[in-house]
Simulated assay, not measured.
Amino acid sequence: MDERLKTDSGLAGDFSTEALCRRILERHRSTIRVQKTHVAVKKLSLIVDAMLDLSNKQGFHATSLRDLSKASGVSMGGLYSYFDSKTTLLTMILNEVLDTVTRVLGQEPPDMMKDPAAHLGWLIETHIRLTEVMQPWFVFAYMEAKSFPEPARRMAVDSEAATEKIFADVLKRGAAAGHFRIEGPDLAAALIKPLLQDWYVKRAKYRKRGTSIEQYIAAVRQLLASAFEASPR
């Protein structure tokens, strides 16, 4: 791993709920009516954690603002200080997932651009570790996508397409340089995505098997290296 990836999760940066909600606050400062940053971040963290938990248990569509108020401990009036509807909260969460994935996967070490095989391995490991540390956020975006209102559903689709493009671009660069023998890099990138999703969507299956995140990363890298005739780095 790049030496910049130095937190316990293996990633550089803070991916705690409070850190993610601080970024949400910055992005929506013009509409969130709570002025004190530390208060706003603390309450927004309670709200988001409660929404992710409720959605996992009963689904986003079935979760009412009254349910959210009770679970988060924030009054109904307090909720409306942060967003005007449940759909707006949904958009806040999805935007943060999309922004974080794009930002983190775009922070590859400079020397990776010279070695597509190493870059592909880095992307695989970084994506899996990111979904590990943000698992409730990614599960929410994946499991609830079909029940999202149309604009949010489009946002979720665009997020998946953006991730696929990052992988496809590396595959194309590797194929052009002779590092990979591959036809249809766009399709290959689309097939990689389910391998990345399986780790956070089917966590219980891998826990039952005793599969660690390191083992899973190594297995995916080995599989793709063999498929594209590139040695694992």
Rank of each mutant, 00 (worst) to 15 (best):
L68Q: 04
L46K: 14
V74F: 03
T87Y: 09
K57Q: 15
R233V: 00
T37E: 15
T163F: 10
Y200T: 00
E18M: 09
K70R: 14
V170S: 05
T31W: 15
A156H: 05
N56V: 09
R4V: 11
M143C: 08
Y82I: 01
A189M: 04
A145N: 04
L5C: 11
A40M: 11
D158S: 07
K114G: 06
V48R: 12
K43M: 13
C21F: 08
D53Q: 13
S16M: 12
P232L: 10
I32K: 07
T7L: 07
S159P: 09
P149K: 01
L195V: 02
L20T: 11
G78D: 02
H127A: 06
E108N: 07
K165Q: 14
A227P: 00
A189K: 01
Y142A: 12
L187E: 05
A219T: 02
A177L: 13
V133Y: 10
A62K: 14
E3Y: 12
D8T: 12
D53P: 06
D111Q: 14
M134V: 03
G73P: 15
R103D: 15
P109H: 06
T63S: 13
A162F: 09
A141E: 13
L79D: 02
G210C: 07
K114M: 13
L89T: 00
E183W: 05
Q107L: 12
G184K: 02
M113F: 14
S69N: 03
L90G: 02
G59F: 15
P109L: 06
A19T: 00
A230R: 01
I47R: 10
V74G: 03
D198Q: 09
K42T: 14
S231H: 08
D169F: 04
A227V: 08
S81F: 10
Y216Q: 04
I192R: 06
T17Q: 08
K205E: 13
R153W: 04
H38K: 14
K42W: 13
Y80Q: 08
E214P: 02
E18L: 10
L191Q: 07
T100I: 11
K172G: 05
G10W: 14
T87F: 06
E214W: 04
F180I: 01
A162M: 12
M155H: 08
F148N: 01
I32Q: 12
T211W: 11
L54I: 15
G13F: 10
Y200P: 00
R207F: 08
C21H: 06
G78L: 11
F15R: 08
K193V: 04
K165E: 15
M112D: 10
E96Q: 15
V220I: 12
L20C: 07
E18S: 13
R203D: 05
Q215D: 09
L89Y: 03
S69W: 03
P116I: 04
T131K: 06
F148P: 00
L105N: 02
G77Y: 05
S159Y: 08
L54V: 14
L65N: 13
L89F: 03
A189G: 01
Q197P: 00
V201S: 02
A168Y: 07
I124S: 02
V157G: 03
T63R: 11
I128G: 04
A71M: 13
I213Q: 09
H179P: 00
V170C: 10
A12C: 09
D169C: 04
A188G: 03
Y82L: 06
D67F: 09
L5G: 09
K172Q: 13
D169I: 00
R23N: 15
D8F: 10
F228C: 04
A152W: 04
L171A: 01
S75E: 08
